[in-house]
């Protein structure tokens, strides 16, 4: 019965928030935060949502009141960001955010950027990998680049969506190796099927999506887009070492609250997040889901978000996707 009760509570809580009935006395809320449950806004479905549910579960164990996830999808994340940004800055509404704050902003679909949020903590990174069909005979990045250049044709690469992070990361990769590419946007999770079906030449997606096919010998993973090697569901080298010198593209995931949230509230959430991310249960769940836990404090996280935002802005300008220039 827990689900049902949780659900009615969720509906009740969010309805109250949406109707502007939140008349919580702010001073009291700060002293012994949290006095009621914390709403963690999630922006997307799929593995990211599952990770947020695990995180909320673990954080609830470290706080006197539970953290619950509420899905507010749409607009590539714009809906959830707008909701959180407009919520009272009291720490009871936080967002499970990602690099999408920068991509959505530069696409011109948000009137505010990452500065509208106070960072709480980074919880992890995700590193996409480049995969090709095994029957292509391409064993590494170089053989793929050479063969495509020799054939003098455009490479068809499957990504999650135009302007999405996987698009930016592949553009950064293929610009470095000098290949002409047609980017084909599939929703989350479709690209591996299209790759196996032979309709695209390569796909840039998450390693866990390819893992079963790599083991079965039908797909080769060529490289990962981060500069430093990380442990992934599939063993591979970095693109940086394989010929795309200087490539470093990773997506961060973390938690943020509306700007103006009191620092002592942020500190409590940060502490709960740290305990959750470092708990063995979270590490194990993350490993199964192909996610790399990596805790960063609010301060480090804030600096990383700002640096990344600048980089994404530049990359999107380069690709002609930046509408905020």
């Amino acid at each position: 019965m827990t689900t049902k009760r949780d659900f009615t509570e969720r509906v009740g809580l969010s309805a109250a928030a949406a109707l502007g009935l939140m008349l919580v006395p702010m001073e009291a809320a700060r002293a012994d935060f949290p006095e009621k449950q914390v709403e963690m806004v999630t922006l997307f479905g799929g593995p990211a949502q599952t990770i947020s549910q695990v995180l909320a579960d673990m954080m609830s164990k470290n706080l006197p009141k539970p953290v619950i996830t509420v899905s507010r999808p749409g607009g590539g994340g714009a809906i959830g960001y707008t909701y959180t940004q407009a919520a009272a800055p009291d720490g009871y509404t936080i967002v499970f955010n990602s690099s999408s704050i920068s991509t959505v902003y530069y696409q011109g679909n948000l009137p505010f950027d990452y500065k509208a949020f106070a960072p709480i903590a980074q919880i992890g990174v995700e590193v996409p990998v480049l995969a090709v069909r095994a029957d292509s005979g391409w064993k590494d990045l170089k053989s793929m680049v050479d063969a495509t250049k020799a054939a003098n044709k455009k490479l068809r690469v499957g990504i999650s969506g135009l302007g999405s992070f996987t698009h930016l990361a592949s553009a950064a990769l293929f610009n470095r190796v000098g290949l002409q590419v047609i980017y084909i946007p599939y929703g989350e999770g479709r690209a591996p099927a299209e790759l196996l079906g032979g309709r695209i030449d390569a796909a840039l997606q998450w390693s866990s999506q390819f893992a079963p096919h790599v083991k079965a010998g039908t797909i080769n993973v060529l490289c990962m887009t981060s500069k430093a090697k990380v442990e992934l569901a599939v063993e591979t080298v970095t693109c940086d070492s394989a010929g795309a010198a200087g490539l470093d593209q990773t997506i961060w995931r973390g938690l943020a609250a509306p700007a103006g949230t009191p620092p002592e509230v942020i500190a409590k959430l940060e502490e709960a997040t740290k305990k959750a991310v470092e708990s063995p249960e979270f590490v194990k769940a993350a490993q199964n889901l192909g996610f790399n836990p990596l805790f960063k404090s609010a301060k480090e996280f804030g600096a990383a978000v700002a640096a990344e935002d600048k980089e994404i802005g530049e990359l999107m300008t380069e690709l002609g996707l930046n509408k905020k220039k």
């Binding site: 479905g45 799929g46 949502q49 079963p212 096919h213 079965a216 199964n288």
Partner: peptide, 27 residues
Amino acid sequence: LGIPGDPATAIILGGLLIHGIQPGPLL
């Protein structure tokens, strides 16, 4: 193949993965 076709099966996939079950040809 370990490929979810709709949002519902994507959630089921998440549930299987979290229990260390990776659907696909090798399963």
